[in-house]
Computed example of a mutant assay.
Amino acid sequence: MIGERIAQIRKEKGWTQKDLAQATRLSRGYTAAIEEGNQQPKIKTLALIASALGVTIEELLR
C-alpha cells in the first residue's frame, strides 16, 4: 500500500507527519489520510511527496 510506504520512508528519515506536511505544503490531515489509506493521492501529489522525501515515485510504489 502506498500510504504505508510513505510512512515507512518518512519514519526512516526521522520525520513526523507534520514535517512531511510542511515540506510538501499539504495539510497534516491530508498526509495522514494518505498514510492511513483513506485518501488516494493524484500522481502530482505523489511527485510532491517523493520529492520532499528525496525518493522517486517508483520507490514509493514498491
Rank of each mutant, 00 (worst) to 15 (best):
Q22H: 14
I43E: 06
R62A: 12
M1K: 08
Q17K: 13
T45P: 12
I43L: 15
A23M: 08
I6K: 12
K44H: 05
L61K: 14
L60R: 03
E58N: 09
I2M: 08
R25Q: 15
A50Y: 12
G37N: 09
R28G: 10
T56N: 05
Q17W: 02
E4D: 13
E35P: 08
Q40Y: 05
T16M: 01
G14K: 07
S27L: 04
I57A: 11
L48M: 10
R5Q: 10
S27M: 03
K13P: 05
D19R: 03
K13L: 13
R28H: 10
I2H: 03
M1T: 11
L20W: 13
Y30P: 03
E36H: 14
I49F: 02
I9T: 12
K44M: 04
A32E: 14
S27C: 05
G37C: 04
R25W: 08
E59L: 06
L48E: 07
E58W: 01
T24Q: 14
A23C: 02
A52R: 01
E36A: 15
R25I: 04
W15A: 14
N38R: 14
D19P: 02
T31V: 13
N38C: 00
Q8S: 07
Q8M: 06
R5W: 06
I9Q: 07
I9H: 06
G3A: 13
K42L: 06
A23N: 07
G3N: 11
E36G: 15
D19M: 02
L46P: 03
N38G: 01
